[in-house]
């Protein structure tokens, strides 16, 4: 017999762990459950997917692009800075991880972390680019990526970076463990975006994206917050590069500094919707899924399909798939749009 009480009815303690979990979920609210789901569901799905579809490398590439799209989300979705040269951080991470394995003989997992650090260090070096904005920033980041590529692939540095002759990590190759690391990285990137969306930091970033001057007047330290987002985004790309290098084990500078990687990550993020938690992931899964269906056997049709999709996106859905769900939610609630 539960004790009589006034006010909200307490949950009986004899409901056990399930009851306590339900109580915690209620406390989190619908938004909280959705946020927990945003981290747990993709991780679970990708862990299961590898048992149902055996081309692990294809799934890994999808994961890597999902992480990169989330990295673009962090910098573009929250600050409005669109780095066309984003691939520089990916390449830096791939080389940071690889050279750590080759010269420092560190375990591959630690090398991936060092790859993230390499991405962040390059990000720190390129922080002055944030003084630019719009197209100038996009082009400057592209030039920076090209410069990094030229340094890494320079034959004169072959004794350090292996120059244009590429990297061979056959001794560290472990397909299943590198896949698990990629899944964990996806979880980390989803968690990062969830935290950003819920934190004062994320709010400050969005305020600077909307109007930097007003945000500064409201007490936001714009330069610091923006630089921090830039470093987080660079570190995510570096980690993705590290995992990619580990998984593919043999690669050339042209593979990890390929501008197409930037373009894909940006398109995936825009397709799903930037500034959202799920958008970049959905974009990566849908578009890379199309790639795996069409692009493997008929890349020319894939490029055509991609081109048509992007044209349709720009014309009819400039806010990405995320804007579609927001619009539908708003429609059912009777309010225009909805909160991001």
């Amino acid at each position: 017999m539960p004790p009589a009480s006034h006010g909200p009815k307490p949950v009986p303690s004899r409901q056990g762990p399930a009851g306590r979990a339900a109580r915690q979920l209620r406390r989190l609210g619908a938004g909280g459950i959705s946020d927990v789901g945003a981290v747990v569901v993709p991780v679970a799905v990708f862990l299961a997917a590898v048992h149902l579809y055996s081309n692990e490398l294809l799934l890994l590439n999808m994961l890597v692009y999902a992480v990169l799209a989330q990295g673009i989300n962090v910098i573009y979705g929250f600050t409005g800075y669109l780095p066309f040269g984003y691939v520089a951080f990916f390449g830096a991470g791939a080389y940071g991880a690889s050279l750590s394995i080759i010269y420092l003989h560190v375990p591959a997992l630690l090398a991936v972390v060092l790859g993230g650090l390499a991405g962040a260090l390059l990000g720190a070096l390129l922080t002055p680019l944030l003084r630019l904005s719009g197209a100038y920033f996009a082009i400057a980041s592209l030039a920076a990526a090209e410069a990094v590529y030229e340094v890494v692939s320079n034959p004169s540095l072959a004794s350090v970076t292996r120059g244009p002759y590429g990297i061979n990590l056959v001794t560290a190759y472990n397909q299943s463990l590198s896949y698990d690391a990629a899944v964990a990285l996806l979880g980390l990137s989803m968690l990062g975006v969830v935290i950003l969306r819920r934190s004062r930091f994320g709010l400050a970033l969005r305020a600077t994206a909307d109007d930097a001057t007003s945000a500064e007047m409201a007490g936001v330290w714009v330069v610091r917050e923006r630089s921090l987002a830039w470093l987080i985004s660079a570190a995510l790309a570096g980690l993705a590069g590290g995992v990619f290098a580990w998984a593919i084990s043999v690669f050339y500078p042209t593979d990890v500094f390929d501008l197409t990687i930037s373009v894909f990550a940006i398109v995936f993020a825009l397709f799903g919707g930037v500034g959202t938690t799920w958008g970049p992931l959905v974009g990566a899964v849908v578009l890379y899924g199309i790639y795996s269906l069409v692009g493997l056997s008929d890349p020319q049709y894939f490029q055509l399909t991609y081109g048509l999709l992007i044209a349709a996106l720009v014309l009819f859905l400039p806010g990405g798939l995320g804007s579609l769900t927001r619009g539908l939610r708003g429609h059912f609630k009777g309010a225009p749009g909805g909160a991001r």
Binding site: N55, L57, L296, D298
Partner: peptide, 20 residues
């Protein structure tokens, strides 16, 4: 499969040939 002279595309396609 057409790898379009890209070694990273080739890696996925070699995997596809073996696993799928």
């Amino acid at each position: 499969y057409n790898d379009q002279s890209s070694s990273s595309t080739a890696a996925v396609q070699y995997n596809q040939l073996i696993t799928q």
